[in-house]
């Protein structure tokens, strides 16, 4: 049971490309294989969840940087 729990954690590390767990090891277990693909899909959707700030905010930041740079040069 403990081994199974650790194996599931290794699957998470695999999904995030943080270990070299062979896919064959996952596919040898039907439940593990199912979880692997399900969670991989959820991860893919979360990766797509990104909100972008308005262009006005980006311009404000860029302007601040330019002004800061000029102020430093003027010293």
């Amino acid at each position: 049971m403990k081994k199974s729990f650790k194996f599931r954690q290794q699957i998470i590390a695999k999904i995030y490309q943080e270990n070299d767990l062979p896919q064959e090891d996952i596919f040898a277990n039907a439940k593990a294989e199912e979880e692997y693909f399900e969670l991989k899909n959820i991860k893919k959707q979360l990766d797509r969840y990104l909100k972008t700030p308005s262009e006005k905010v980006i311009q404000n930041i860029l302007n601040y940087s330019k002004n800061y740079n000029q102020a430093l040069k003027a010293r």
Binding site: K51, T52, I58, L62
Partner: peptide, 22 residues
């Protein structure tokens, strides 16, 4: 002093930072 370098950093990381805050 390369402002374009900063603009690239901002464009590259704005969405992740903004989403985390949001």
């Amino acid at each position: 002093g390369d402002e374009s370098a900063f603009e690239q950093l901002l464009q590259r990381h704005k969405s992740k930072a903004f989403t985390a805050i949001l």
